[in-house]
Design a protein around this nucleic acid. Structure first.
Length: 222
DNA sequence: AGCCAGGCTACCG
DNA sequence: CGGTAGCATGGC
């Protein structure tokens, strides 16, 4: 087995389903893909997406808990929060000056959206939301079939030889989506993208933090 | 004690 | 367009 889909199946058998996104809401259960179920959970994804940019999972949880203790997990409350307080709350997630602005931007956007599903272009127009953040919001927030490409995905795919060093975001996204959309559709496709992304992160945390890369799974695909 | 985290914007050529 | 400096904390 040497296909990209084969890697997905192999990682799934290795680590199992990850059932992923919301950081704070403990009502979220693995293998239940019906989330987010309300506006609060949806906005938490927007917050998490911004905070997680080049930051660790732990630090994002810390920041979200700080915001929660300030009762500032809703867009209007983020906007009403004193800027200094907001920055202090999200400090663990780095770049707090930039991210405070980004959080205000997504809060405005979220309210203007009024429940509608945004387009990818709309999301990209927000200062602070790039390609990965857009796809994360669409895939986990709105269950739209958009594969997320992050630094780990690129690292693993380059190491496996699926793409060259110079591959760009759209190259990786196109490659994966072309193969997956031939095999799956509808909700199954969304779930596969969610799980594949989460599995790549899990795998990368174990084996792709530091060179030399590689593990037994890589050897199976050479 | 360093190294490095699930990026993005602005600005360079 | 493609490439990269700057952002800037804290866990391991």
């Amino acid at each position: 087995m040497s296909s990209i889909y084969g890697l997905y199946e192999r990682l799934l058998s290795e680590y199992g389903t990850q059932g992923w996104w919301p950081f704070l809401d403990t009502s979220y259960h693995k293998d239940d893909y019906s989330y987010p179920q309300n506006s609060k959970q949806l906005f938490e994804i927007y917050l998490g997406v911004v905070l997680t940019q080049n930051a660790t999972f732990k630090s994002v949880v810390q920041s979200l808990e700080n915001l929660k203790s300030l009762d500032a997990l809703s867009p209007i409350k983020v906007l009403n929060l004193d800027e200094h307080i907001l920055k202090e709350a999200i400090k663990p997630s780095k770049y707090y000056n930039q991210k405070a602005l980004y959080l205000q931007n997504v809060a405005h956007f979220f309210m203007a959206q009024n429940g509608k599903t945004p387009s990818r272009a709309d999301l990209l127009s927000i200062k602070g939301i790039g390609e990965e953040s857009s796809d994360s919001i669409l895939l986990y927030g709105y269950n739209e079939p958009q594969m997320i490409i992050d630094a780990y995905t690129k690292r693993i795919f380059t190491h496996f030889g699926f793409v060259g060093e110079g591959a760009k975001y759209r190259d990786l996204k196109g490659l994966i989506e072309a193969e997956f959309s031939k095999k799956l559709s509808g909700k199954d496709l969304v779930i596969a993208y969610q799980e594949f992304h989460a599995l790549l992160v899990e795998h990368a945390k174990r084996f792709y933090s530091r060179k030399p890369y590689g593990c037994s799974i890589h050897a199976e695909f050479v």
